Simulated scan of single mutants.
Amino acid sequence: MRSTLTPALAALALTALTGTAHAQSSDPVVVSSKIDTEGAVLGELIIQALEREGIPTENRLQLGATSVVRSAIQAGEIDLYPEYTGNGAFFFDMTDSPVWNDADQAFETVRERDADNGLVWLRPASANNTWAISLREDVAKANDLVTLEDLADYLADGGEFKFAASAEFVESAQALPAFQQAYGFDLSADQLLVLSGGNTAATMRAAAQQTSGVNAAMTYGTDGGLNALGLVVLEDTLGVQPIYQPAPLVRESVLEAYPSIDPTLEAVFETLDLETLQRLNADVAVNGLSAEQVASDYLDSLDP
């Protein structure tokens, strides 16, 4: 979601693409995605859903990081890809705006701003792939911990807690300090295991294996390994973190050529709640299935 490539690599990726800026009804819809697991899953869902409705597609999945696919759709080199509402904060230089902490406002903002760019945001999934604090499921159940408010009460009562996170998460004003300020708790140094890098696979593994007494981890909301490793996301009831809901982003001219894209993809994305997207990601990242097979099986399950 937040990975980057150098301008040179981005330019190279774009050079390798072909396409036109204007869509005709006979042209295939060029579908792309970011290079991570969730990008592959969402991209395959889009391609296969469109193909099942008789809309021709061209597969350009796993193209690159956010900057690459964003540049490609603006240049008309790709037509459609899954993007996250919260990334509008960076697209439109609005990182200090509170609109990103509200799902509806975030969606309306990106939809209105990108309309000027000839881009249309379709209805997002309810799943939120944002920074989160996750806890071992056994600890959460034993102590009735569902929300971060519950966690604050648990900590105030002296509950056992050790948190694995990246240095960025611990130090960034928008991450752990924001959670602590909003919910009124303060983790001491001996309650933290700070790991180099920002790989949530490492933090989740530390919690699952109880490395150095760790029972909680920095994660993203839709991380595929959560269920497999026995971790649960504690709900951010105060909306501290920006909302990152995945949504199809399509060029306006392509949507005009294929208006059925909208209802077709809405029918799929409206089913993608947090647990569902976690499970689909896990089928790829943990169980070793291909994104193509996972998408096919899921769409089959949606058929009446």
Rank of each mutant, 00 (worst) to 15 (best):
R2V: 12
R2I: 14
A8D: 09
A10S: 09
L14A: 12
T20C: 02
Q24P: 01
S25T: 03
P28Y: 06
S33G: 01
I35E: 03
E38M: 02
A40T: 06
G43I: 06
E44L: 04
E44A: 04
Q48L: 14
E51D: 12
E58F: 04
Q62R: 15
V68L: 03
V69Y: 08
R70K: 13
S71C: 10
A72N: 07
A72Q: 06
Q74G: 06
A75H: 03
G76V: 11
Y81Q: 10
F91W: 15
F92T: 07
D93C: 08
D102L: 05
Q105P: 08
E108L: 10
E112K: 13
D114Y: 10
N117K: 14
V120A: 13
L122A: 09
P124M: 11
S126W: 09
I133K: 02
E137L: 10
L145G: 04
D150V: 12
L151K: 04
F161N: 01
F161V: 03
A173H: 06
A175W: 12
Q181M: 05
L187G: 08
D190F: 07
L193A: 07
L195R: 05
T200L: 06
A208N: 10
Q210D: 06
V214D: 01
A216T: 05
A217Y: 02
A217T: 01
M218Q: 15
T222W: 04
L231N: 08
E235D: 03
T237P: 10
L238A: 12
V240S: 09
P242R: 12
Q245S: 15
P246H: 15
R251G: 09
R251W: 06
V254L: 14
L255S: 07
L255H: 13
E256I: 13
P263C: 04
V268S: 04
R279W: 11
L280P: 02
D283Y: 11
V286H: 00
S290G: 08
A295L: 03
